[in-house]
Structure formats: structure tokens, C-alpha cells
């Protein structure tokens, strides 16, 4: 039917773009509006597509969804789940924020750690949780990440980490700041014994996490369109009195400036990570 060829997708990004909405949306099915193309996408369709819109926009994933997406089926074994935050400085309102975050994310902390196999190869994995205080790093996140790298050294395993973070958690003051040094030292020890660390930066990765373990990996990948930077956009605009272009601090911008190895769309990540592990003989028993 050559006359209908115009309905065929021209490329990956457009896949389903022109025909999906009228065909696949059931009456009454919940939809999610895409902030990029502004179309309403049926949730079921988004789920099938790893929460990526047909326009290419990557919605945020929960930490456990990330792990499920890349780990071989039922291979994930969680570590350090008993570690979570307290309110060491008696910071006003922090206890309530922690409770609300636990409720919103159904997690007890902003990072999930463990071991898994990816394409049959054993590795350590961590994934940060944006629904828990925007993945901010306090003592507990720092402790879990540090413990995971130390475990990986003992077990001689590579580490794959998904970052998403607003930065250091200000409610723990200096203790949060010191987690940057603590995690960095653990990453360095892991690196110095010749082990591989792959970071996948997801939207947004900023502040103290960018300035520590996110940027310290051997191989740094990012999801398309993810915000990756140190200072917040608003702070830079206030400091420089300039309006910043839309693409500023996008993964594509950061790649262009030489701080990423590659941008990896979500649907390719498992295959790519497995291939990189294989290239390093990562964790092959």
C-alpha cells in the first residue's frame, strides 16, 4: 500500500509518532502528557516503551525500575538496605521530609544498592531514586555507595551506577558535604585495583553528585536529554545575568564539551552495558 507509506515511521524517534495516539489509546485509559511533544500518551504504551515517549523524551524511572531494566531476571540481590537517614543536626523539618519521601518513593533511602548479573556477568549495581528527596546525598547515601564500592573491591566486581540527584542534602550540612570525599576515596580504591566502574547519568544529575562519583567513572554514559551539571541553571543565570539556552547542561551539551563517553537511549542500555562488561571481562566467573 504505497499510498499509506507516509504513516510508516521514518526513524526510531518517530516510531509510532504519527499513528500511535489515535490507534492505541483506549477510551478512559490514563494518559501522561509528554513535556517535550505535549502529546497525551497512554500509560500502558509508555510502560511498554520503558517510559520513553515516541518523540524520544525519557520520563524519570524509579530506582528499582532501572535495576529491573538492566539486570537479568531475578538476579538482583539487594545490599545495605538497612541503612537509612536520621536527623543528625536536628535540622528543622527534616524528619517530616524524610517521612514524606519514604511515603512518596516507597523506599527508605535515595539509593538502592546490590549485586546482579547483566548479560550473565556479575556486577555491583546502584540506582538513585529521584522520588526520595530528589536523590540528594546525605550520610546514608554516602555510606551505601561507599560500602558498595568496598564490597566490589572485596568481591572483585565491576560497578554499574545510575545517578539522579539534586546534589548534597543540605539538611545534613557538613556531613553531606563530606560524603563527596568519602565516596570519591572509595571509587578511587576500586579503580586502583583495576576494576571497572560505569556511570549512567540520568535526569537530573547535578551538584555534589556530579562533583563526586558521577564524574569519576571509567566510562560515563548519559540518557538523551538528561540535565547534567554542577551549578543549578537559575543560580548561573543570577550570577551571570544571562539567559541560558535550552540545551545548556543537556547530556548532548556535556557530550559536546568532552565530559561524557556516549549518550545511550534507554532501550539500548542493557545491551550496551553487557557489551562493555564483556569487553572488560567484567565479572565473568
Amino acid at each position: 500500500m504505497p499510498l499509506l507509506n507516509f504513516l510508516q515511521p521514518k526513524n526510531d524517534l518517530e516510531e509510532g509518532g504519527r499513528i500511535s495516539a489515535p490507534v492505541l489509546s483506549d477510551a478512559g485509559e490514563p494518559e501522561q502528557n509528554c513535556p517535550n511533544c505535549h502529546k497525551d500518551i497512554p500509560i500502558s504504551r509508555l510502560r511498554e516503551n520503558l517510559l520513553v515517549c515516541s518523540c524520544g523524551y525519557h520520563f524519570r524511572l524509579h530506582a528499582r525500575q532501572r535495576i529491573t531494566m538492566i539486570a537479568d531476571e531475578s538476579s538482583f540481590c539487594e545490599l545495605f538496605s538497612e541503612i537509612h537517614s536520621c536527623n543528625p543536626l536536628d535540622f528543622p523539618g527534616y524528619r517530616e521530609k524524610l517521612d514524606a519521601a519514604a511515603e512518596a518513593s516507597r523506599e527508605n533511602e535515595a539509593v538502592i544498592c546490590g549485586t546482579a548479573t547483566v548479560g550473565g556477568q556479575r556486577c555491583c549495581v546502584f540506582a538513585m531514586e529521584s522520588a526520595f528527596m530528589m536523590g540528594s546525598m546525605g550520610s546514608a547515601v554516602g555510606e551505601k555507595i561507599t560500602s558498595l564500592f568496598e564490597y566490589a573491591v572485596k568481591q572483585r566486581l565491576p560497578v554499574i551506577g545510575f545517578t539522579v540527584s539534586g546534589g548534597a542534602r543540605m539538611q545534613e550540612g557538613l556531613l553531606s558535604l563530606m560524603q563527596m570525599a568519602k565516596t570519591s576515596a572509595a571509587v578511587k580504591r576500586h579503580s586502583d585495583v583495576g576494576l571497572l566502574y560505569i556511570a549512567v547519568l540520568t535526569d537530573p544529575t547535578t551538584g555534589g553528585v556530579t562533583a563526586s562519583f558521577a564524574m569519576e567513572a571509567d566510562i560515563i554514559l548519559a540518557e538523551p536529554g538528561a540535565t547534567v551539571g554542577f551549578a543549578g541553571k537559575r543560580v548561573i543565570e543570577q550570577t551571570t545575568k544571562q539567559t541560558l539556552p535550552k540545551e545548556f547542561q543537556s547530556a548532548e551539551f556535556v557530550l559536546e564539551h568532552g565530559f561524557l563517553d556516549a549518550i545511550s537511549p534507554r532501550k539500548d542500555q542493557k545491551k550496551l552495558l553487557a557489551e562493555i562488561l564483556k569487553l572488560h571481562n567484567g565479572g565473568l566467573q
Binding site: 570519591s184 576515596a185 578511587k188 562533583a211 563526586s212 554542577f230 548561573i236 564539551h257
Partner: peptide, 25 residues
């Protein structure tokens, strides 16, 4: 650390991160 356009373009986060890892050893 300076919050500027050039600072981001030249990897402010990466520069700090590298000091943290290298100073630790």
C-alpha cells in the same frame, strides 16, 4: 566554585571530582 557558563562548559563538577579522588591517595 564559580557558577558560570564557561565553568560548566569546562567541567566544574569533573574538576572538583578529580581533586577529590586524586587527593585521597
Amino acid at each position: 566554585a564559580y557558577c558560570g557558563i564557561g565553568a560548566e562548559e569546562r567541567g566544574q563538577g569533573q574538576a572538583i571530582a578529580e581533586n577529590l579522588t586524586e587527593m585521597s591517595t
